[in-house]
């Protein structure tokens, strides 16, 4: 290993760094839990708007999706953290000044809501039209039919692509380091600076991979076995 080991796999530094970074994992989990929660709620809402019979509502949803899919997440993070705060400081509108973690959650949610909306829409549209008709013919309202018949089936179909979203979001939390969120990459860079050695980056990579690789395997497996959407779980 020699030189390479000393710089990138420095055992002493690795040993010191890992416990520090594990604390940062808590921050990442926080970002993921809140980010996914809001992204899925908002995404579901937008997907339902996207298939609305009212044209204006469909358009609004389409504009949202295009806007946030077309925007770099890094720009969004920077705007929500620095851009809003700058105006907040100058105008005294203090609610515009967000701490790093809430700012990151807002940016991640807005961006991932757009992606999830497309996934949910594809899921809903993949359910045969006859399901909606059968539900309506039994006297269910559109909302009841969605809730009890269409969405439970659509959810099963969208689990594999949503798992991929989760993987992408885990990696994208690293972007929050630019707005001083004390997440894994941010802490790794701090320690790298103090120790003048890049081994903390190796430690960060190990932690990310520990989370992402199992999920990548799970996603691949789910995708492979998504045969008939009608098969109930556990069969």
């Amino acid at each position: 290993m020699g030189q390479f080991g000393r710089y990138y796999f420095n055992w002493d530094i690795l040993r010191d760094t890992l416990p520090e970074l594990l604390k940062a994992v808590v921050v990442v989990v926080e970002l993921l839990v809140f980010g996914l929660f809001f992204a899925f709620i908002l995404g579901l809402l937008i997907s339902l708007m996207r298939i609305s019979r009212v044209r204006i509502i469909r358009w609004l949803a389409a504009i949202y999706v295009d806007f946030f899919r077309g925007l770099p997440l890094l720009l969004l993070l920077t705007f929500i953290y620095y851009g809003l705060a700058l105006v907040g400081l100058q105008t005294g509108l203090r609610f515009l000044i967000l701490p790093p973690i809430p700012a990151a959650v807002v940016a991640l949610s807005l961006c991932y809501a757009a992606y999830s909306a497309e996934i949910f829409r594809a899921g809903i549209e993949s359910i045969h039209r006859g399901q909606m008709e059968a539900a309506r013919s039994l006297g269910m309202t559109y909302g009841q039919a969605m809730r009890f018949v269409i969405l439970p089936q659509a959810i099963k179909i969208v689990i594999p692509p949503l798992t991929n979203e989760l993987i992408a979001m885990i990696k994208d939390t690293a972007l929050a380091s630019v707005i001083t969120t004390p997440e894994i990459l941010f802490r790794a860079r701090e320690i790298m600076g103090v120790r003048a050695n890049p081994t903390p980056l190796t430690a960060a990579a190990i932690i990310y991979l520990v989370f992402t690789i199992p999920l990548i395997r799970v996603a691949a497996r789910l995708e492979k076995k998504k045969g008939s959407p009608g098969t109930p779980a556990g069969m």
């Binding site: 006859g130 059968a134 013919s137 006297g139 009841q144 009890f148 099963k156 009608g230």
Partner: peptide, 28 residues
């Protein structure tokens, strides 16, 4: 008005009995 379709359109995620009881419970 009850309606029966050519392609059955049963709810695949529910058991036979749940298919039959869903609307009476949720709608009625």
């Amino acid at each position: 008005i009850g309606m029966v379709f050519q392609s059955f359109n049963l709810f695949p995620h529910r058991t036979v009995l749940d298919n039959v009881t869903l609307a009476p419970i949720k709608v009625q």
